[in-house]
Amino acid sequence: MNKILKYSLYDLIRSRWMFFYFGFFLLFTLGLFWLSPDLSKVAISMMNIILILVPLIATMFGLMYFYNSREFTELLLAQPIPRRHIFLGQYLGVAGSLSFSFLLGMGLPFLFHGLFTSAELPLFLTLLVSGVLLSFIFSGISFYIALKNDNRIRGFSLAILVWLMLAVAYDGFFLLLLSYFKDYPLEKPALALSIFNPIDLSRILILLKLDIAALMGFTGAVFKKFMGSQIGMLIAFIALLFWMLLPVLGIRRASSKKDF
């Protein structure tokens, strides 16, 4: 697996898409700093990019890479290595190089702006960690979808649907549900619903650093416990790790059953 990972990284790091992706984040972040010296304003804009674009790009790129390397994958399948190593290696290659481009593209402008001496360091680290986790989760989901669908059009449509669901529609249903049952105690359901969506989880992870003052205004005891201590941070982080593991298990299962 390490060898497959190594060579996919060799391949991907030199891909123009990765340069493009890196360049996008670099210019975007520099642009934000140029438009506003206010760190927390920059953070909010970056948060939106991380919550919407990072999952979308990771999904699309994962699918593209998978479908484009089909023939090469066949060559690898004929080599004396277990299947799961091939797909996990490729997946880690994609997720790793996406994360690398993202980290470098967003991280370098921070360094230029002396972030590591700033009080906002924890907030920006949370942003970077969320971006990396979402890159891993969504490229994993895209690999799983691609493994399950040989038809590219179908694969892409499905992936966009999943992204749309998790990035936007889910919160719509969520809000509808909360408003509908507003006369009931909703603290636990609200937290539980957040856990079932990795984008919501990342958002909450960032909120705990960005908007803690507002979150603390809530009266409920469960929220208070969740938001007011490190427990919330820890739970959200662990749940995200689970989300990272899920597609990996899916990839293992799907690849062991698939015909090429």
Partner: peptide
């Protein structure tokens, strides 16, 4: 009030 968990959601 519980909707606060949806703060800054794209939706």
């Amino acid at each position: 009030p519980e909707a606060i968990v949806l703060l800054r959601s794209p939706f």
